[in-house]
């Protein structure tokens, strides 16, 4: 049983996203103690998975610290906050053999006490089919 819950919702969307489309949603954090959250970061990013070292790049990033919201007031993390971003032309989501590219919306919560917490919501950019290994010509 954890005393912290991250709410992360993507607005309804049929099928994969395409370059230039808007991705949008809401996020928030609920905790037992109000002062338990130091900051919350929302990122729209891609990362690689597979045999190689992991690469990662952030397309959209926003950070809310406890003591400074947009109006300079104490931030209210429990209320759902809207986000949106226009998706880039590349890289597209890809399920290769050695290289996999995955897009996600990630919320990372920095706590006053205890470890960071994070929540991911994966989505697909483009519809590149899964790759198959091919034997090279002799």
């Amino acid at each position: 049983m954890t005393d912290l819950a991250i709410a992360l919702q993507l607005d309804e969307h049929d099928g994969p996203y395409w370059p230039g489309e808007i991705i949008s949603g809401r996020y928030g954090v609920r905790t037992a103690a109000d002062d338990d959250v130091r900051a919350v970061e929302l990122s729209i990013l891609w990362y690689t998975v597979g045999q190689g070292e992991e690469d990662l790049a952030v397309h959209h990033f926003e950070r809310r610290a406890a003591d400074s919201d947009d109006e300079g007031h104490q931030a209210n993390f429990s209320s759902l906050r809207h986000f949106q971003s226009k998706l880039p032309n590349s890289p597209l989501s890809y399920e290769g053999i050695l290289v996999k590219i995955r897009w996600c919306v990630r919320v990372r919560v920095f706590r006053a006490r205890g470890k960071e917490a994070l929540s991911d919501k994966r989505f697909f950019l483009g519809a590149v089919p899964r790759a198959q290994a091919v034997t090279p010509s002799p």
């Binding site: 690689t48 070292e53 597209l92 890809y94 050695l98 590149v128 790759a131």
Partner: peptide, 12 residues
């Protein structure tokens, strides 16, 4: 349906 060329620090 080709995947586009891609280049990052460790993957290509």
């Amino acid at each position: 349906d080709a995947m586009h060329s891609f280049h990052s620090d460790h993957n290509e």
